[in-house]
């Protein structure tokens, strides 16, 4: 039987979509809006660093960021494919999307290890 790699991409897409749906809105509200607008006091630098360095926090941050990238890669690939009917560029689109997410994942791993 012809095997397909789609289940793999789809599982990353699904995991990323779930993590993003649960965690990104509140993270964005706190870091991108509430603190910059002064609605909430920014926690001290030392405390943020200490929290982010916790192994659990590192794991969580890595998964959230990396899987969000793969979530985008998979969805956006099909949006280009169907939405703009770029079927003939299928391979190129796939390489750019999943490749981009992989670069982002490496960057996230590097950043979090050196935190």
């Amino acid at each position: 039987m012809k095997t397909t790699i789609e289940p793999f991409w789809w599982s990353l897409f699904g995991a990323g979509g779930t993590l993003a749906a649960l965690f990104i809105p509140i993270t964005l509200i706190i870091n991108g809006l509430a603190i910059p607008l002064g609605w909430l006091d920014a926690p001290a630098y030392e405390n943020v660093l200490q929290l982010a360095r916790h192994p659990l926090a590192r794991t969580y941050l890595f998964l959230l960021i990396s899987l969000s990238f793969y979530h985008w890669a998979h969805r956006f690939r099909f949006t280009l494919y169907d939405g703009l009917q770029l079927k003939h560029l299928n391979l190129l689109i796939a390489v750019i999307c999943y490749g981009g997410a992989t670069v982002g994942t490496i960057a996230a791993g590097y950043t979090l290890i050196n935190l």
């Binding site: 993003a20 870091n31 982010a52 959230l64 960021i65 990238f69 960057a107 996230a108 950043t111 979090l112």
Partner: peptide, 16 residues
């Protein structure tokens, strides 16, 4: 989703 994940990653990098 990915855009914010990137911003968040940059924030963590600045933190480091």
């Amino acid at each position: 989703v990915a855009g914010y994940a990137l911003v968040y990653l940059l924030q963590l990098r600045a933190l480091g």
